[in-house]
């Protein structure tokens, strides 16, 4: 019976990371899965994603732009996950982002984007009916690590916000079937740009830009076992405020960037601690964002850094 408990599924790394400039989802999503790694376990790995769009929404008006062609965002990230104990994990990730447009003259950009650090806490895990119910609270902090340019969308690698994110998540696992739902509030700091006057819905005489907060709802379901996870994900991100891009205007960091994304993820775990992830997702609806499709893949290694003898004893006592 204990085999279906999430905490007993040892090889739990980071399912998916989605960094996308020109989207509210410029953040790690690993904190959005209902998976904990056990005490003293450490997971480290790297991932790569390729996302691109050739159509985007100006407000609600969907269009292409032959002066951009296809806008691609490549992300290479490193991340780590540590089990402080079975109910408390810390997760950190840092991506390097490269943007490029296939048409027009605008120069692509690249650089280290934002460090995301999360604390994931599972205060409740209890049998419910025939399955297992768990509740999670996740707090994250997002810190831009350098002064990359935010005010050159869609070429910018990010929005350069410092953010605090709070997520509440519930998970229900019935045999190998699971359902996870979560809601997240994103509190974003104002940003500073290189201009001292800019237009939003009026001319503003400051180099500071008021960044609207955001809300994210994430729902995922699928098959979850020790060896394999296969899941479908639906996520909606909403900017709480912000303004629409006007017809033929340039995008701006404080735009109202909304999107609904559908995707699938897979993870396969080997017995000796290596795990492979992969997946794809697609923006099915949006506002002031590109209609991205993304593929991603990652390799992680999970290992026990606690005292071997102690861990063995614990395993034995639990069994």
């Amino acid at each position: 019976m204990s085999k279906i408990l999430p905490k007993r599924i040892k090889l739990k790394g980071l399912l998916c990371i989605c960094f996308a400039a020109f989207s509210i989802n410029a953040k790690a999503q690993t904190e959005a899965d209902a998976i904990m790694i056990p005490k003293n376990y450490f997971c480290v790995g790297g991932m790569y994603s390729y996302s691109s769009w050739n159509e985007y929404w100006e407000g609600t008006f969907k269009r292409d732009n032959q002066n951009i062609g296809t806008l691609s965002v490549q992300t290479a990230g490193v991340m780590a996950n540590y089990g402080i104990n079975d109910r408390l994990n810390v997760i950190a990730g840092l991506p390097y982002v490269t943007t490029r447009a296939t048409a027009g003259t605008l120069a692509g950009m690249n650089g280290f984007q934002d460090l995301t650090a999360s604390v994931k806490w599972m205060p409740v895990e209890t049998k419910l009916g025939k399955g297992l119910f768990s509740f999670y609270g996740i707090g994250s902090i997002v810190l831009p690590l350098n002064d990359y340019v935010a005010d050159f969308l869609p070429m910018s690698i990010g929005l350069h916000c410092k953010s605090f994110m709070a997520r509440a998540m519930v998970d229900y696992q019935l045999n190998s079937l699971f359902f996870t739902g979560s809601g997240q509030y994103i509190n974003r700091s104002n940003i500073t740009i290189d201009r001292n006057t800019y237009y939003t819905t009026r001319l503003i005489y400051s180099n500071e830009v008021a960044m609207p907060d955001g809300a994210v709802f994430n729902f995922r379901t699928g098959y979850r076992s020790q060896k394999l996870i296969a899941e479908a994900i639906l996520e909606s991100g909403t900017t709480l405020g912000g303004f629409d891009i006007r017809k033929n205007d340039m995008p701006f960091p404080s735009n109202k960037m909304n999107s609904t994304t559908a995707g699938v993820n897979f993870k396969y775990s080997m017995d000796f601690g290596l795990e492979f992830t992969g997946g794809a997702n697609y923006v099915v609806a949006g506002r002031n964002v590109g209609q991205s499709s993304m593929v991603h893949a990652g390799v992680y290694y999970l290992f026990d850094i606690g005292k071997k003898t102690k861990e063995t004893k614990k395993e034995e006592s639990e069994n």
Binding site: V119, G139, I141, K162, S163, F164, A166, N187, R188, S189, N190, N196, I204, Y205, S206, E208, V209, A210, M211
Partner: peptide
């Protein structure tokens, strides 16, 4: 820590020159 952070980031008003 989390709540501290939320409180710090709450200020959005821009002062224009």
């Amino acid at each position: 820590l989390l709540f501290c952070g939320l409180a710090l980031a709450a200020c959005k008003k821009i002062e224009e020159r």
